[in-house]
Amino acid sequence: MSEEVKQCSCCEEEASEEELLARLDEVIEEYQGKPGALIPVLQYAQGIYGYLPEVALKRVALGLHKPYSEVAGVVGFYSYFSTVPRGKNLIRVCLGTACYVRGGKQVLDAIKSRLGIDVGETTEDRLFSLEIARCFGACGLAPAMSIGDEVFKRVRPARVPEILSRYNEVDAEKEGVVNVAG
């Protein structure tokens, strides 16, 4: 199931509103009546939409027979969930204790100034969104950051432009491949 969802979120073709809701309904149906269903269903929903729009949250509340206030409360509690659309690549800079002492803050500042966005924002070209994380369990590699599923270790502020541009290139390459295949 999780693989399927990953495909969805990376899918190049835009799915219609109905298709997205149909996918969400499948997930809700699978989890209906099961204890502890809310968080996994929200994770899948975010996978399907890339973020958690109101229409999806209301669907989840209705489908799982949960109050909308509770669904919103859970979404607001976990920084993993986002109710605003994110860029194609989500940057998460760790500011957990180890990363913080080893310069995570400077890495964050470097990214902010390079991209011209603040935490919680998305670049105009919708390529990057920036968030802070509280430890992803890579303390030995501090300071750490991630872009999408890729984790970067012992990041120095000076390396930031290179990391970001590399990501740009990967992206361009991928599109190239798609073009060739098409």
Binding site: L57, P67, Y68, S69, E70, V71, A72, G73, G76, F77
Partner: peptide, 27 residues
């Protein structure tokens, strides 16, 4: 009924309807 729930986290926690809605917009 479930009109009220804890929204947000830590010091910023506010008790209320979803996303700081007004009560009149909540059930």
């Amino acid at each position: 009924v479930g009109a009220l729930f804890a929204q947000g986290r830590g010091f910023a926690t506010l008790i209320g309807p979803a996303f700081a809605q007004d009560l009149s917009d909540a059930v």
